[in-house]
Amino acid sequence: MPSLTEIPNLGIQITLVAGWLGLILVVAEGLNRIFSVSPEISRKIVHIGTGNVILLAWWLNIPAWVGITASVISGIIAIISYQTPILPSINSVGRKSLGTFFYAVSIGILIGWFWTIQQPQYAALGILVMTWGDGLAAVIGQQWGQHKYRVFGSQKSWEGSLTMLLVSLIISSAILLTVQGNHQLTWIVSIAVAIVATGLETFSKYGIDNLTVPLSSASLAFFLNQVL
């Protein structure tokens, strides 16, 4: 727990994070309720917008317990929203996907893991691969996906899958280049993460990729850097 001298600074940090999350929800809800934007679009706005909070948490060095607490609260809200239409921009009542809940869980796990070992870049990598990779893959696939294929009953598009691969590569390499520089290992790890993340997103059902993609991307990048 923070000491008395840390509380003012911690209060500012929490306010900034909460303000960012609140702004994303307000924008998504406004588009959904006022301008009748499709629920899928508003969900992607929340998906991408909230995921970027990991960068704010990393930059501000938010304590791990704050991130974990926030993920628990978000998970509870997600579960409630499956039964009660409190936030249509997040979930529709009766929606079969548990993606929003898994999203909150993955953030809590990654913060709890990598914050405690002073390696927050891996938590950021895992979350942002999911945030931007899956988010943009869904948008591109739905809007411009002309070449469809089916996996375990789920329809995908090659355009969406390629977007997931490229965005995952860009995110992974950008974070690793920033932290460890332009080395051969940086690119090996980034390519491996992009391929695995794309594969997991392709074969996922019921939103489980919101758990498997960030956890696998972060852990793969971490262990490959340790081993290689």
Rank of each mutant, 00 (worst) to 15 (best):
M1I: 04
I7H: 02
I7V: 10
Q13P: 00
I14S: 11
L21V: 09
G22R: 05
V26Q: 02
V27F: 06
V27N: 00
N32D: 01
I34L: 14
F35S: 10
S36A: 06
V37K: 07
P39H: 00
E40I: 09
S42A: 03
S42L: 01
R43G: 05
I48T: 01
G49S: 07
T50G: 10
N52C: 15
L56G: 08
L56M: 12
A57H: 06
L60C: 01
A64W: 00
V66F: 11
T69W: 10
S71E: 13
I77T: 06
I80W: 07
S81K: 00
T84P: 10
L87C: 13
N91G: 08
N91E: 06
S92L: 10
K96R: 14
L98Y: 15
F101P: 12
S106F: 14
I111Q: 04
W115C: 02
I117M: 12
Q118K: 09
Q121V: 09
Q121M: 12
A123E: 12
L125I: 15
I127E: 03
V129W: 08
T131V: 12
G135Q: 03
A137Y: 01
G145P: 14
Y149L: 14
R150W: 15
F152T: 06
S154E: 13
Q155K: 01
Q155I: 07
L162G: 03
T163L: 11
T163R: 07
M164L: 13
M164R: 01
L166K: 05
S173I: 04
S173N: 04
A174M: 01
A174T: 03
I175K: 00
I175V: 08
T178E: 02
V179M: 03
Q180E: 11
N182C: 11
H183V: 12
L185R: 04
L185F: 03
I188K: 02
S190K: 03
V193Q: 09
V196K: 01
G199L: 06
G199F: 00
F203C: 11
F203V: 15
G207T: 04
D209N: 05
N210Y: 05
S217E: 06
A218S: 15
F223A: 08
F223G: 07
L224A: 04
V227D: 02
L228M: 00
